[in-house]
């Protein structure tokens, strides 16, 4: 069952997409976006894992065990923090939608036509 971790990542991606398609609330849609983003985190860290590996911290590293991939960790840790503020921006837009139309339901906000 080697590709099981990647199957989990695929499930998260499609689940996030399903959430956006079927959402009736912008806040719910924003959280589904973060679920979709977490599929990339899971894939990144699983790609970087090594069997019997140890964290890439050379202080107090046990000899004989290989270091896990530090590059994917560097990419992921900044992305996680950035996802918070992108979520804050989407929620700010949702708050504006609520202030304009009294609801955060995409159907209620029908400004565009044709």
């Amino acid at each position: 069952m080697a590709p099981y971790p990647y199957a989990v990542a695929g499930v998260l991606f499609v689940a996030g997409l399903y959430g956006i398609v079927s959402s009736r609330n912008y806040i719910h849609m924003a959280v589904c976006l973060t679920v979709m983003q977490s599929s990339t985190y899971v894939t990144l860290i699983c790609v970087g894992y090594l069997n019997n590996g140890q964290p890439p911290i050379t202080q107090g590293a046990q000899p004989g065990k290989p270091l896990v991939d530090p590059v994917v960790q560097a990419l992921t840790l900044t992305d996680v923090v950035v996802s918070v503020v992108v979520l804050a921006l989407v929620l700010a837009l949702a708050l504006q939608a609520h202030r304009r139309t009294g609801s955060v339901d995409p159907d209620r906000l029908r400004g565009m036509r044709g």
Partner: peptide
């Protein structure tokens, strides 16, 4: 997606040159 992800090296088996 699974068809593509299955092309990845087995979980925990290899490490790239960069890493």
């Amino acid at each position: 997606l699974l068809w593509g992800l299955a092309g990845l090296p087995d979980f925990g088996s290899t490490q790239g040159p960069y890493a």
